[in-house]
Design a protein around this nucleic acid. Structure first.
Length: 277
DNA sequence: CTACCATCCTGGTTGC
DNA sequence: TGCAACCAGGATGGTA
């Protein structure tokens, strides 16, 4: 499911019910997620209060009152559901369950088990293997056109691949990269190092607009993503290119152009060859 | 450095 | 209808 907007949506849902609350019980129905759950996972968390719920790139971070941080990645198919009333029966891929001191149940459901959880000392978070190499947050105001230009400099890889590289910028995924490149009028095939100056300006604007609009819409629900309430996100209705191969381009100056689907580094890219150069 | 590939896992869709 | 191949929002590690 989850790119930055979906993870942000989940983060907000968790914040509302977790911050300041104590985890009474932590149940691991399966410990073999993408990586094995760390030893003592439940013991390190249960009986402790959640101080803050945060997000870094596509990672959820639960800061606990014992200076432990839960690092949580949703993988491809991870869903989080929050129940404020007695929950329905557990479902097939409900792997991890949290119960709070005020009767809230949180379930992590992940069919493909590409998601994972890990624990880390607060002081060592920045050095954690999954966190340390991440590039800047795309919505950080200091991540501007100049910053983006600097990070693309010297990279011959296609801009599509560069934007998916979490060390370049952290949080974009396959859907939003296609959408952002369309809005910026940049071909996904263009060498990253040639995206400089005005193109960088346009790309920064596109990234901010697309991500902010997606967050406002509660993310995009294609197969797996739900808001923590169970409601669908609805940004998929605002997709302009993703999964729209063969359909007419909505760009105002396209005059009959249509969306093309290509494969780059093994993953589908959608774009309008007329509008994006 | 770069491009490409396989891999982890499950399930929905497509095509014969 | 049945079944196999292929595809999917992520990320890493290996190869040439």
């Amino acid at each position: 499911m989850p790119e930055l907007p979906e993870v942000e949506t989940v983060k907000c849902g968790l914040q509302a019910v977790l911050e300041g609350r104590t985890l009474n019980r932590v149940i691991a129905r399966r410990t073999d997620l993408r990586f094995p759950l760390p030893d003592g996972f439940g013991q390190m968390l249960s009986g402790h209060k959640v101080v803050a719920v945060a997000r870094r790139a596509k990672y959820l971070l639960l800061h606990m009152d014992n200076a432990v941080v839960l690092i949580w990645h949703l993988g491809m198919s991870g869903r989080v559901r929050i129940f404020t009333t007695p929950p329905p029966p557990e479902e097939r891929h409900d792997h991890i369950i949290f119960e709070t001191d005020h009767g809230v149940t949180i379930r992590f459901n992940d069919t493909r088990r590409f998601g994972f959880m890990d624990l880390c000392d607060e002081a060592a978070l920045a050095d954690h293997a999954m966190i340390a190499k991440l590039g800047p947050e795309p919505l950080d105001p200091t991540f501007d056109a100049a910053a983006l230009a600097g990070r693309l400099k010297g990279r011959k890889t296609p801009i599509k691949a560069a934007l998916l590289d979490q060390t370049v910028v952290a949080g974009l995924g396959n859907i939003y990269v296609s959408e952002c490149l369309f809005h910026a009028g940049i071909s996904p095939r263009r060498s990253a190092h040639t995206v400089q100056g005005g193109r960088c300006e346009k790309l920064i604007v596109a990234i901010r607009q697309v991500l902010n609009a997606a967050i406002a819409a509660g993310g995009s629900s294609l197969r797996d993503h739900r808001q923590t309430s169970g409601e669908l996100g609805y940004f998929q209705h605002q997709f302009v290119v993703y999964d729209k191969a063969g359909q007419p381009c909505k760009g105002c100056d396209c005059q009959g152009g249509s969306i093309e689907q290509i494969v780059q580094s093994g993953r589908s890219t959608y774009f309008c060859p007329r509008r994006q150069t």
